[in-house]
């Protein structure tokens, strides 16, 4: 299938805003991406070593000594939908392809290492920030949360500075 062009960014932003608004209107929750991986980790640790999970304050705030299922949560279901939506969209636009996307200046292997490092940093950072780009920054900005704007500035500011040092990874 022929690849389709991406949507106009302003139009996409408009739709994203509507999705965000709908999330608030129905469920009082914003959008989020890091909550699901987090809860998956908590669930996995609880399954493997329940006592360890109950003795660690962080895990236990999600499991409550097994009283709560960390995966039975709004953001987890939302991310399952996100996977489905991304897949649907990719199918219709002919972008479904197993590929490691990387700049011609680096090898695919290097790109994967960098993606892993970036993911780890994001994993740790999203816990300190109590949410990621969509959950803390975008949703936070929309509800006028001071934390949302602070997160936005911290993320984009650091990315801009660090980006200058890792230019070779991208261009």
């Amino acid at each position: 299938m022929e690849k389709m062009k991406y949507m106009n960014p302003y139009l996409a932003g408009f739709f994203l805003g509507l999705v965000l608004l709908a999330a608030f209107y129905f469920s009082a929750e914003g959008l989020g991406g890091s909550g699901a991986p987090k809860r998956l980790v908590v669930g996995a640790v609880e399954a493997v070593a329940p006592n360890h999970a109950y003795n660690n304050e962080f895990y236990n705030s999600y499991t409550q000594n097994g009283e709560r299922n960390p995966l039975s949560n709004w953001v987890v279901v939302q991310v399952v939908g996100l996977l489905a939506g991304g897949f649907l969209s990719g199918t219709f636009s002919g972008r479904l392809k197993l590929v490691t996307e990387h700049s011609p200046k680096i090898t695919a292997k290097r790109r994967l290492y960098m993606a892993l490092i970036g993911g780890i940093l994001f994993g740790i950072g999203s816990q300190f920030g109590r949410g990621c780009t969509s959950g803390a920054a975008l949703s936070g900005m929309a509800v006028f949360s001071a934390a949302g704007y602070l997160t936005l500035i911290a993320i984009f500011g650091t990315a801009f500075i660090v980006g200058k040092f890792v230019k070779k990874l991208w261009i």
Partner: peptide, 13 residues
């Protein structure tokens, strides 16, 4: 957290 995420953003894409 924002600083870590920003670095992750630039490195991981």
């Amino acid at each position: 957290g924002g600083a870590l995420m920003g670095a992750g953003f630039a490195i991981g894409g």
